[in-house]
Write a protein that binds this DNA or RNA. Structure first.
Lengths: 150, 150
DNA sequence: TAGCAAAGTTAGCCCAGCCTAAAATGTACT
DNA sequence: AGTACATTTTAGGCTGGGCTAACTTTGCTA
């Protein structure tokens, strides 16, 4: 078995770390029009040096275009991933927040889970989110049950 | 900031890798009464050498008791974690499987997500699972909507 | 009971991703 | 233009968790 359990299907696979960076860069560009190393570092809670390092890899792998001391811009493939992760983030957050969970806990869980969700699972979660947002009766019933079990 | 964003609350935190091992050891012991290195390695898709290595760490950190060339047994703290992860695994699996997702996809997603779920989130997911299992009407409605969106 | 296959272990290695310290570059103000 | 401060980059290092190859131990069976 060359390289433990081949990824036979999807070709390009990227690590959670790469997804985190692309998500963050995407968010910053959406929000302020540009993404600086210092902000990426702050948002991810890591050092600026680490960010510079990874940005060079992201460039080498074609996710961003990077020029020394200037900013980064995202390529199409980078944007695609960044948006995808941001979408998962939003769906998970809305689903869990609907139940009134502590925002910090929601955030931590979402950060962890968002890298491990296939399209199919995302569809299911989206569906649940929509149903609960559109069906206050049901949500209320479940929240009550939730409270009584804690 | 010593060690990037302190874990101020929960003291003992263990890595996803450790959780995987403990879950697997727990499952094997439940199923066949003992856990051999070769089986753990097979189930996790990694080499036996890596397993031996990690088992020594698990012993050092008090999750299992290990004796050279003999098996491992789990300590209370190890059992606790193993059971906890197995529980998360089961809840996630039942929830997603209920929607008829491809079992392989379910398994992959669950393997990834199960390490990032707080107690609160687990409670929510459990609730959803129970509601859907006990409310076939609702499940049916959602599955239909799911199909039409794919 | 001797030998052999299977299981377990050790040694040495590698890579992803993080870190700190120090150097380089950019920017803003006088 | 010069200088101070912020930002970015480089260099060097560390740890977790994996690998292969070579060895040891166990346990079954002839």
């Amino acid at each position: 078995m060359p390289a433990a359990k081949r990824k036979e299907t999807t070709a390009h696979v990227h690590s959670p770390a790469i997804e985190d960076y692309l998500e963050q860069i995407h968010n910053l560009i959406e929000g302020k029009g540009y993404a600086r190393v210092v902000d990426i570092a702050k948002n991810l809670g890591i050092s600026q040096a680490s960010v510079t390092n990874m940005i060079q890899r992201l460039d080498a792998e074609g996710y961003v275009v990077y020029e020394r001391y200037r900013g980064v811009i995202m390529t199409e493939s980078g944007k695609k991933i960044g948006q995808e992760i941001a979408r998962r983030h939003e769906v998970l957050t809305r689903l869990l927040s609907g139940f009134g969970l502590d925002p910090k806990t929601v955030h931590e869980d979402v950060e962890g889970m968002e890298h491990h969700i296939s399209r199919q699972t995302l569809d299911v979660l989206t569906l649940l989110m929509e149903e609960l947002e559109g069906n206050p009766e049901l949500l209320k019933k479940l929240k009550k049950r939730l409270k009584s079990s804690s």
